[in-house]
Computed example of a mutant assay.
Amino acid sequence: MRAAYAIAANDADPLSALEVGERPEPTPAGPDWVTVEVRAGSLNHHDLWSLRGVGLPADKLPMILGCDAAGIAPDGSEVVVYPVIFGPESGPPWSILSEHFPGTLSERVTVPATNLVRKPEALSFTDAACLPTAWLTAYRMLTAKGRLTAGGSVLVQGAGGGVATAAVVLAGALGARVYATSRDAAKRERIAALGATAFEPGARLPERVDVVIETVGEATFEHSMKCANVGGRIVVSGATAGHLPKVNLRRVFANQLEILGTSMGTPEELAALMTLLVEKDVRPVVDSVFGFSEVRKAFEKLNDGDVFGKVVIDYTR
């Protein structure tokens, strides 16, 4: 079957470690595992980190990449693949597809049957394939962790990437006032078109917010703390610009701030996310769609960094 996979680790030139070609058919890892015919997938920076060797040791190579997929289950139903695999007591407690088990950038993927979430008919395969990693993380940041309520306020730092862009859209769908920052003027225009009020990094906001979505880290964390309201929640799921920010503890206790970490979500939250998108008639922000024969071009685009939203692979093209 066709697949995109890592054959090595190269931190300086990750795309040199990428191979696109034939791989053996997937083998179920247990009696409760099933095979999904993949119709669409999407790329994440996790895939580039894998090519750099982060979280993917040499003894796991070659490894099929990809965390996100939507496709057809053995019973013919349309499903989205939940990418977290919970391990045995003797192994890691959990991993994401493409770390210990082959990923979704292939024509077929095997996962536990419990990892299949029914796809609403109203969502296309390409839209649904955007959701399991970035959009699910953003949804959990806003809801379970951020406890955002309708009429609340949100600041999204560094909007433009997958999680941050998803947070802008979802916060609006949840009825919040949304502010977002970006260094790029063109991206600020696109953020504004999604319903947020866009600012340059570090700018003073019209109000202090209930929830801050933090995926940037060191470069924005001080601003995040200054922008959080009394009792506000700063929810962190990434640190693309440094993971050791200075934290003013006096501000933390004086304003009763909560600094919360999170990653991914649950299958139930993935189902709730899809329900929200259908009910609010909202769809993921898609930067570009490539056919499977163009997978390398898709990786090149993601690696170049000039991306707004998700890069999607349509397996039917």
Rank of each mutant, 00 (worst) to 15 (best):
P132Y: 06
M141R: 00
E37G: 09
P206W: 02
E37D: 15
R140A: 13
R188I: 08
G172L: 02
R108V: 02
E218R: 14
I7E: 13
G161K: 12
L56T: 08
Q157S: 09
A12G: 15
F125D: 05
V252Y: 10
A239L: 07
L155Q: 02
K310A: 09
N10I: 01
F308K: 06
P24K: 14
S98C: 10
T262Y: 01
T275P: 01
T114H: 06
S90I: 00
V289H: 04
E19A: 15
Y315G: 01
G195P: 12
R296P: 06
Q256Y: 00
P62I: 11
S153H: 04
A239C: 13
I213S: 04
V109I: 12
L244M: 14
G158L: 05
G160R: 03
S224W: 00
K246C: 00
L277F: 10
E99I: 06
E200R: 12
F125T: 04
P26H: 02
V81D: 11
E25S: 15
E22A: 15
I191T: 04
G291Y: 13
V212W: 02
V80M: 09
F101A: 07
P112R: 04
I234W: 04
S50Q: 12
V36Q: 07
L155F: 00
T266H: 07
V109N: 07
V169M: 11
C130L: 09
G151A: 05
V278W: 06
R251G: 13
C227E: 09
E25T: 11
S293Y: 00
I234Q: 10
V247I: 15
P24Q: 14
I234M: 07
L56M: 10
T27C: 00
A138W: 01
P132R: 08
N115K: 03
I7Q: 13
K301T: 11
L136K: 11
E22T: 14
W94P: 00
P14N: 05
G291Q: 12
S98G: 02
F253D: 00
W135V: 05
A298Q: 03
S50D: 01
A219Q: 14
G30M: 05
H46S: 06
L249R: 00
M63E: 10
I234K: 07
A150E: 14
G195V: 10
R317Y: 03
D59I: 02
D68I: 04
R23Y: 13
L65G: 11
I64K: 03
G195T: 11
S50V: 00
D306S: 13
A298S: 03
L136D: 07
D47K: 10
F221S: 07
M274H: 01
M225F: 01
S293P: 00
R283I: 04
S42G: 11
T275G: 12
N229C: 02
T35V: 15
E207D: 06
V117G: 05
I234G: 09
R23N: 09
L142D: 07
S16T: 14
L136N: 08
P201V: 02
E78A: 15
V235W: 03
N44Y: 01
L48T: 02
L43W: 05
A129P: 12
A203C: 13
